[in-house]
Amino acid sequence: MITAERKPLEEIIAYVRPFDRILLVGCNECVTVCAAGGRKEVGILSSALQMAFLKQGKNLQVKEHTLERQCDPEYVEELSSMIDGADAVLSMACGCGVQEVARRYRDKPVFPAVNTTFMGASERQGVWAERCQGCGDCLLGITGGICPIARCSKQLLNGPCGGSTHGKCEISPDVDCAWQLIWDRLKALGLENRYEEIIPAKDWRTGRGGGPRKIIREDLAE
């Protein structure tokens, strides 16, 4: 999923200060799962903002609404009945959702209330970690199911650097060395020999190197 974290309240307050009526929009997908921008977080942020402005003598009107999926025009359309009653939109979706709202409602200011962080997985209750950078040409089939692009600090494709110590990355003892994990997994699979195969210079065009990407499925596109 796409993970996110709420921005500091002061930053959000600075965005909405010029306005009296805010439409605060959550999303029921990834940001709900990572507890950053679902219905519950919309309610908490709404109360926090109203309280903060009340202290300054301002009665901020906040209309709360959580969409099924904010990156999907079909659901974003739902806001059309509420948009005129708001001076600005505050979105708690990932950057995709924020941009979809901005695209649909061109004359309405839209502000992000969360920082979109990474594509990751839940490691345990309350902990998420990066797993994928969407390079567009998945290597997991040859790296033991562990991605060196997302999980090695230097995205090295051919093994650990000289900074790998006790299974940890040179940048921090809190970061696992991806190549230690890959090696351990290749061993568990009896595929140690695969380590010696050199992965040649990667074609990054399928990733960010190729500019903004788009998928067009001829069989589905209208």
């Binding site: 093994g159 650990p160 900074g163 790998s164 006790h166 299974g167 230690q180 090696w183 140690e192 010696e196």
Partner: peptide, 12 residues
């Protein structure tokens, strides 16, 4: 560096 068992493979 670690893992030690990979060090000669890495040289290779």
């Amino acid at each position: 560096a670690d893992p030690f068992e990979i060090r000669v493979l890495r040289l290779a």
